[in-house]
Nucleic acid binder design. Structure first.
Lengths: 225, 225
DNA sequence: CGGACATGTGGATAGCGACCACATTCGGTA
DNA sequence: TACCGAATGTGGTCGCTATCCACATGTCCG
């Protein structure tokens, strides 16, 4: 599922292939599988251990608490999402088309892995530490979107103000809010409730968002500090 | 905290003040309190019972499963959110100003009650039944936003296409996605990570959203207060 | 080759959700 | 008014879980 989700930030040097194989990765993998299968991520730590073929206590040699395993799994989820997003827009030059494509890819990921996506954004608050694995993996995805916006702003397709860093930051956050919110609503089934297909709604949302980002005379619109 | 969060949809006639007092409401109230205090809503059913001053088993007389109590608490949360939103825009005539005000009120609610807000959108997927208490309470909030958009569309402040029902539905969903996503990001602490205040970002987001909703050249100035 | 250390196992504890049998209280009715 | 059935609350119990502890085993380095 995930090609290389392991982070090399802990640097235990040669401790990766130690005794039994590297259990840490196997545990994260098992957690990802469980999150991908069920529609909720309330699986037990013991179940993860069972799936990895170890005793119920082995995980504690790699994660001090269950939360830390969830944290690692969430980080792996962010890595996977990032790889899907960048792959989706790799060959697209037009910023507007790339933006739309990335938006669809984002929502698609969320609806394909609802529990995983929910997990990715549920672990964070319990550890507001900004050096947390999840937060790092999360933030690492931002440049993918930023690049598209910056390119579009340079050729005048988006608001030229976006070439300024603070404006770009805010716009990125705005765009993220749109797709994130849409994804959550899609997962929660509001779309079904409305009898509208997710694709149609996503299309509309992308169009409206693009109209919001394209500021031709918006340059005169004082941008309120 | 909540003035009248009890729903009268079950209609057990005179069973509200039965034996010991009406425990059902007390339990929901206790759950709301716990969700408002902690930053996570993973409190135990026994803890709710303890806070309500009853045995660990009494709740099962009112809710078949713990999930059902969470469901009721989430519905109460939606009721509270709706009342705050409508109260915030009660005296505002200008659609654009009302839209901005409601957006701020929405994000404010989410950041003030992070665990409750998360609970409100976490219970749904486990019960996709559209007659569920949460879903009903959720959907009941939509007209508040729809009214603003419709009014704005009628006077040409927003895209006139929004007077059509399907377009209005989609636009409502879009707007909801924006504020919902922004709220989730604010809760998850991305705003802190960016060193940008939530208010400033919300301001920008509202401005950009309004520009996206505006029809032709209606994007003159963002009257975001 | 031997010990320190990393890694994995089994056992134990406290708390939880959910079920059971039983006690208590209310509301209607004979 | 007294009684009966249903609604409501209590204590007990079971299987499961997260976490801690003591112990076993494998690995690497001197």
């Amino acid at each position: 599922m995930t090609p290389d989700t392991h982070n090399s930030r802990r640097a235990p040097s040669a401790s990766d292939t130690y005794h039994h194989g590297d259990l840490r990765r196997a545990l994260v993998q098992a957690a990802l599988e469980l999150a991908a299968e069920d529609k909720d991520w309330d699986f037990s730590l013991r179940e993860v251990a069972r799936r990895a073929g170890v005793s119920h206590n082995a995980p504690y040699n790699h994660f001090p608490h269950k939360r830390d395993l969830l944290d690692a799994a969430a980080a792996a989820g962010h890595d996977l999402l990032r790889s899907e997003l960048t792959a989706a827009v790799a060959k697209i030059a037009d910023p507007r088309a790339a933006f739309a494509k990335m938006g669809f890819a984002y929502v698609s990921f969320g609806t394909r892995y609802p529990a995983l996506y929910r997990l990715m954004f549920s672990v964070t608050p319990s550890r507001p530490d900004r050096s947390s694995e999840v937060v790092l993996a999360w933030v690492a995805t931002r440049p993918a979107l930023e690049n598209i916006l910056r390119r579009g702003a340079r050729i005048g397709m988006f608001d030229p103000a976006l070439t300024r860093k603070s404006e770009l930051q805010t716009a990125t956050l705005y765009t993220w809010a749109v797709v994130h919110g849409l994804t959550m609503l899609a997962i929660d089934g509001l779309a079904n409730l409305e009898r509208l297909s997710v694709e149609r709604i996503a299309q509309k949302v992308v169009t409206t968002t693009l109209r919001g980002l394209a500021g031709r005379e918006a340059a005169t619109n004082g941008s309120t500090t």
